[in-house]
Amino acid sequence: MADNAANNDQDAVIRVRGLENRFGNDVVHDGLDLDVRRGEILAVVGGSGTGKSVLMRSILGLLRPSGGRIEVFGRQLRDSEDAQQFMSRRAGVLFQDGALFSSLTVLENVELPLKTHRPDISTQLRRDLARSKIQLAGLRASTSQKMPSELSGGMRKRVALARALALEPELLFLDEPTAGLDPIGAADFDRLLHTLQRALGLSVFLITHDLDTLYAICDRIAVIADRQILAAAPLSEIEKLDHEWIRSYFHGPRARAARQQDSATG
């Protein structure tokens, strides 16, 4: 997708300008700017407590920013309620542990967004659509009758991905999708994400700590530090930046391993 992203340099689906977030005396964001371009996978990285999740929650309208402007698809979000309304139809969200509704089966979980926003779709078709999303997320159709508590962590994330895709969003938000997965499961999930992103033409906002994910699938990387976006650029440029956190993050032993693995697998 690199060429695609380059072509649409001005084509930002999310435009965050001058975002401020403070909790009491604690300033999390101060004049933060960020663009997510159409059809790219943007990874947001940063140390613990730098406000990655706060940024995502602000864009989604789950949290009211103290100041600043957020535009999604060229439409400025007036307030958090407006944002929630708008985002619930145009964006899919995958929360850290899946956030599946534990009282519903897998199929019912995936059906729920369709049921809420598209009551005109017949039950049979809705089930078929939900089932196809479950399969798209790489699960067998027989999983659909299970309860979330019967699933492994990796499967729960896949169901959550299927639910996030149910309304055919153009935007996908992921909060640490590979956290808590074993390396093989994490690599599988990365691959699935990449395939789906290409096939469905999604723009992806991804919070991660996983260096393998960064090297394997991300088009651009935004680094949050000192209450702002320090840089948002392809990995090769970010690595060259001279900043303490970036150095220790990208040039530590784990980063070297991830880079080697990436160049080995192509």
Binding site: R131, Q135, L136, R140, A141, S142, Q145, A199, G201
Partner: peptide
């Protein structure tokens, strides 16, 4: 083009979709 890629992804995923209801 792009639609073919999408179709192939869906086609590959959904082959056993006539799973009997319990």
């Amino acid at each position: 083009g792009q639609w073919r890629t999408l179709f192939d992804a869906v086609d590959a995923a959904c082959d056993d979709r006539h799973e009997p209801e319990p």
